Amino acid sequence: MAQSAIIKDVQVASIQAQLPAPVVFGDWVMKIREFATVRVRTSTGHEGWAFTLTRDGAVAEQIRKSIAPVYVGTDIADREATYRTTKGRTYGSHSAGVGLRALSIVDLACWDAAAKIADKSIAEFLGGQVKPMPATCIIGYPPAIMPPEKTGAQTAAFYANGWRRFKAPMGATWEISKARLKAARDAAPDAWLGTDLVWMFKTVDEAAAYANTLAELDMGCIEDIFPPGNAGKLAELRKRVPMPIWFGDEQGGSYFPEALIMAKSVDRVRVDLTCMGGITGGRAVIDECLAAGVDFCPHMFPHTHSQVFSAWGFDDKPVEWGVPWTGVHPYDDALAQPEIMQDGSGLMKPLPQGPGFGKMIDKEWCLSQPHQDPDHILQD
């Protein structure tokens, strides 16, 4: 019989990652990127870790208030049942948004701890293995100040190092945004190229007008065009543009991805296990896509997604990496970085495998940033 492993505590710290320049997407201005990192400790002395962006939500408060009290005292082997119990006790808070985001990283930390108890990598624990995967380089940061010529030079440098997939967010204006993409295309003529419209468009007409100016660049996708909440409007846009539409970042929960699928809004659903239910709840999102025959791929968090998606047999899905220390995803920058195969495939080699997810926190970096750590999990 497996050794009982009771969850002793669920603790969380918040880290305000400093950026080289504010990230400006219209009314959305990010002067920092705040992350919440969770530690789950068991009676066997094992620790599970996971992290997510807070998106300025009270993730740490939610964990302390309504999630940790349910998990503490339960057996790590019962983590899926505990996830459902926690969600069911507070459907109004835990079905979507901040509550689901908080519950997701606790679930991931529990899976990390369980894999460590079994002395297996998370991929092995899920019954699979890690394989080489396509990797997308997020270029063009900081977007408000990175000009086209520097975006092109950045693309050229990464292309020379084996990268074959690139994605840039909107710049300061439509004209600059297109010029940045053209510079990237000129630097990497045969590469896959996508763009994140970061929810900056309000109407179908304006979104279609901009997207159609990009048609000559052979775009691999446009994504996150409108603020979430109107699958019908997205479906209308899909009929009016030549490139695939990807959607779903930062969502999850009630009617996701059901609404997008039923409205035939997307070519690919974006999946983020750190805010869509972790491993326990997030797998249902993927299963819904599979049942409907709709494609999907992960959003950022490559240390989590590359291992889980590969273990589940989806090693053809591209994982995303920001250019280090440009403000894309600072927490990742202090962890293991990708090694791209030098055979022209653009595939990344599997990340180093350790028990569980491997190293999911660099405490020295966390402590170098403004932070709130009432339980001292960054200093133990």
Rank of each mutant, 00 (worst) to 15 (best):
D267A: 05
T195L: 06
A231R: 04
S177T: 15
A168Y: 00
E206G: 01
V241R: 03
E236S: 07
E175M: 04
F226Q: 05
S265I: 08
A188G: 12
V198S: 11
F256P: 08
E149G: 05
R270S: 07
L214E: 01
D249S: 14
A144G: 10
P169G: 12
K178M: 10
F201K: 06
K150G: 03
T173F: 01
P242V: 02
A156S: 14
G194K: 03
G253P: 09
F247N: 14
W163F: 15
M219Y: 02
A211D: 04
M200P: 00
A231I: 09
L234Q: 03
Q251A: 12
Y159P: 00
A187L: 12
P228A: 13
E175L: 05
W192K: 04
R180H: 01
M262A: 15
K202C: 01
D190Q: 11
N212A: 10
K202F: 00
I245H: 08
A153I: 05
A207S: 09
G162W: 03
A168I: 13
G252W: 01
S177W: 02
P228C: 09
A208K: 05
I225T: 15
V266N: 02
K178I: 11
F226R: 13
P244W: 10
W199P: 00
N161F: 02
I176E: 13
R268M: 15
V198H: 07
R180G: 10
P244M: 11
E206Y: 01
C221V: 10
E236C: 07
I245T: 12
A231S: 14
Y210I: 10
R240I: 05
V269T: 03
A144H: 10
A235C: 07
G220R: 06
T173E: 04
L193N: 04
A215F: 04
P242N: 09
L237I: 08
V241G: 00
P189Q: 09
F201M: 11
K202M: 01
E175Q: 14
T195E: 03
A153E: 15
D224Q: 11
M200T: 12
V204C: 04
M219I: 07
N230Q: 06
A157E: 13
A184N: 07
T173R: 04
A168Q: 03
L181C: 12
K150T: 11
S254G: 03
Y159R: 11
D186N: 11
A156Q: 13
T213D: 13
I176F: 01
D224S: 10
K264C: 12
A160M: 08
N212I: 07
